[in-house]
Design a binder for these strands. Structure first.
Length: 478
DNA sequence: GTCGGTAGGT
């Protein structure tokens, strides 16, 4: 039965190949006029289509600095700007800093910021928020707070952007209790009025720690406070629900978002829901969702297909997963390292380590470079097969190739060690991990091994609860 | 005139 549904799904994707490939190239209005609305979903899709026609897709004006994509160019521009007299406006500097941040050169950006301060270029709340963001992205949120203090003596009034950035930094570092405290303090002392991004950041943090109920509570609080939730708010919660296999609750929110709030779903919404359905083996509904995407003219992207590759692999249908990749290639889409990582993962899951190795070895000829996830997948495969020696070799292979094991690599290795009863070695590896500055825990790491929670924050592990939403509201009105 | 957020691996 399952295999029949899967081949049906495969055939469906094959049939829709052209649509999926070309849809982005056509103007939206043409889509709508030529849209073939399916019978089963007709009212649903008509409604969604009407939302589409109301959505405006105006593009924002771009600064000349957004075109800068090379770090050297940016640095040269900075040197030139800082010598110019009179000095260019702070806005120009901010745009340049922002461009450097977009390139993810956070340390470099901080260096430029420091130079601005030393040279006497006036900095404002924009420059401050960029500098704080850089600290946070480098897992140096405390330095971000230090910069917040600088705001005060530079007479810069911290705004909702600055506080959102700091909140995001705390969430990134798993400091959820501090994040919650900061959020409530901001509200209570009226330091700033949270906007949708700040709520979304807090919701993301709650979801990261599996607190969906609280996340939904915050969604309701937003409503009460007159802050309009957006597609990101819903996507974050729906994704979390899907990950917790609470797909029906996710669909309830989906309906609420579309029908009650009139918010248009995007490709991320559908990818999350499809992923949730796949994980529960609800293949018929996966087909339906793909069809609905077609009807509302949202084209699946690489990530959507990777979810399907993943799903087929997990069903043991690795050949079908390979077929999906072939379809992607035929459509002119270029599977990336993520796609192949998923496939390698699939073979590892079945214990077919030699096949996994074959795919791994083929990466270079495809012009792809294995990343830390590639190695982690193989490592996981060896751990699952209790081949801890080979797993250890893979672990060392990562550093040899100039990559850094991340939290998932460590967690995988740790779980492998636990499984073969080498708990002492696991604890030593955990300490090594912390010593290496590995402090960010992703949600599945926390879920996969309760002992981590104990090791990171005994308060949380002991059931030290986050305050109920009702009390947040009380605080608000005080 | 600028800045922030959502989907992949244990």
């Amino acid at each position: 039965m399952i295999s029949r549904t899967i081949s049906h799904l495969l055939a469906f994707i094959k049939l829709r190949g052209n649509f999926f490939t070309n849809s982005f190239l056509l103007p939206l209005q043409n889509h709508l006029s030529s849209s073939r609305l399916g019978l089963e979903f007709s009212s649903h899709t008509t409604f969604l289509a009407s939302l589409h026609s109301n959505s405006n897709s105006s593009s924002h004006p771009r600064s000349k600095f957004q075109k800068v994509t090379n770090l050297d160019d940016a640095l040269n521009m900075f040197d030139e700007m800082i010598q110019r007299r009179p000095l260019p406006s702070v806005v120009q500097f901010n745009q340049l800093l922002n461009a450097v941040t977009k390139m993810k050169h956070f340390s470099c950006c901080l260096h430029l910021f420091k130079q601005m301060c030393v040279t006497g270029v006036p900095v404002d709340e924009y420059s401050m928020s960029i500098a704080i963001k850089c600290c946070c992205q480098l897992y140096r949120t405390n330095d971000g707070f230090a910069l917040l203090c600088c705001c005060f003596w530079r007479a810069v009034v911290p705004d909702v952007f600055i506080f959102s950035t700091l909140l995001d930094g705390l969430v990134l570092e798993d400091r959820i209790l501090e994040a919650e405290r900061l959020f409530k303090k901001l509200i209570k002392h009226r330091l700033c009025e949270p906007n949708v991004v700040m709520y979304n950041t807090m919701i993301k943090g709650l979801c990261k720690f599996g607190n969906n109920v609280m996340a939904i509570g915050l969604l309701r609080l937003m409503d009460e406070r007159g802050c309009k939730a957006d597609v990101v708010t819903y996507n974050t919660i729906m994704d979390s629900l899907c990950k917790d296999k609470m797909i029906d609750d996710a669909f309830k929110l989906f309906k609420e978002m579309v029908f009650e709030k009139g918010i248009l779903p995007n490709v991320i919404t559908y990818t999350s829901l499809i992923c949730g359905l796949c994980n529960l083996g609800r293949w018929e509904e996966v087909s339906k969702m793909l069809k609905e995407m077609e009807d509302v003219r949202i084209s699946p992207n690489l990530q959507t297909f990777t979810v399907l590759v993943d799903a087929f692999c997990k069903e043991g249908k690795v050949d079908d997963a390979e077929a999906v990749i072939d379809i992607m290639v035929e459509r002119g889409e270029v599977p990336n390292i993520v796609t192949y990582n998923t496939l390698i993962d699939g073979y590892c899951l079945r214990g077919e380590m030699s096949k996994a190795r074959t795919v791994f070895d083929s990466l270079t000829s495809r012009g792809l470079v294995p990343n830390v996830i590639t190695y982690s997948s193989l490592l996981n495969g060896y751990c699952k097969n209790l081949n801890i020696e080979e797993a250890m070799l893979m672990f060392h292979e990562i550093t040899k190739n100039g990559l850094k094991p991340d939290i998932v690599t460590f967690s995988t290795m740790l779980q492998g060690l636990f499984r073969v009863g080498r708990c002492g070695a696991a604890r030593r590896l955990f300490d090594e991990m912390r010593a290496q500055g590995q402090h960010c825990f992703c949600r599945s790491a926390l879920k996969s091994c309760p002992r981590f929670l104990q090791w990171i924050n005994p308060k949380l592990a002991a059931g030290w609860c986050i305050m109920p939403i009702s009390m947040w509201i009380d605080n608000y009105s005080k």
